[in-house]
């Protein structure tokens, strides 16, 4: 019996289909989900999500989000989900640099919304770089 997995971000539906199992970065540590997992609601941190299907593994970098698991379904709502293979390191590094410059340009205590947005983008970039490099080292 397969696990029906759905990964959705605000920009697009990233994945929808059945998998054998999935490992995801929960707030309190990695969670491995197999079919017939007990119903669980939890939140997710920045990290690496691994999909196992028919012997092959897909690695995704994911952001913060909500995870809902019922017996046959796993639904993941996150603000980012990128395939590790498709990460362009140079582009991410540039984006990170730009974000850091923007952050320096903002005054502390003001423009809280801007600061929060830039911080989120820095976190996303760092997570992508980190996991991409880890994958390459393996």
């Amino acid at each position: 019996m397969p696990l029906n997995l759905e990964i959705v971000t605000p920009e697009a539906s990233i994945f929808r289909g059945s998998v054998d199992s999935v490992e995801l970065p929960g707030v309190q540590g990695e969670i491995g989900v197999l079919p017939m997992h007990a119903p669980l609601i939890t939140t997710m941190n920045y990290g690496e999500l691994r999909l196992h299907n028919a012997g092959s593994t897909t690695n995704l970098v994911v952001g913060e989000g909500l995870v809902e698991i019922t017996g046959a379904y796993a639904r993941i709502l996150t603000d980012m989900a990128v395939d590790v293979e498709s990460i362009d390191e140079a582009a991410i590094e540039q984006a990170l640099e730009r974000a850091k410059q923007t952050l320096d340009g903002l005054k502390p205590g003001e423009q809280q919304e801007e600061v929060a947005a830039v911080m989120a983008s820095i976190q996303r970039c760092t997570a992508q770089l980190h996991i991409r490099r880890k994958r390459r080292a393996v």
């Binding site: 929960g26 707030v27 309190q28 007990a38 119903p39 669980l40 609601i41 939890t42 939140t43 913060e64 909500l66 809902e68 019922t70 017996g71």
Partner: peptide
């Protein structure tokens, strides 16, 4: 409706998810 387990706790999960 299944009886969900919350991790770390229902209140903590809602605290992060609901504002979002």
């Amino acid at each position: 409706l299944p009886q969900y387990t919350f991790e770390p706790a229902a209140a903590a999960v809602f605290e992060t998810v609901l504002p979002q």
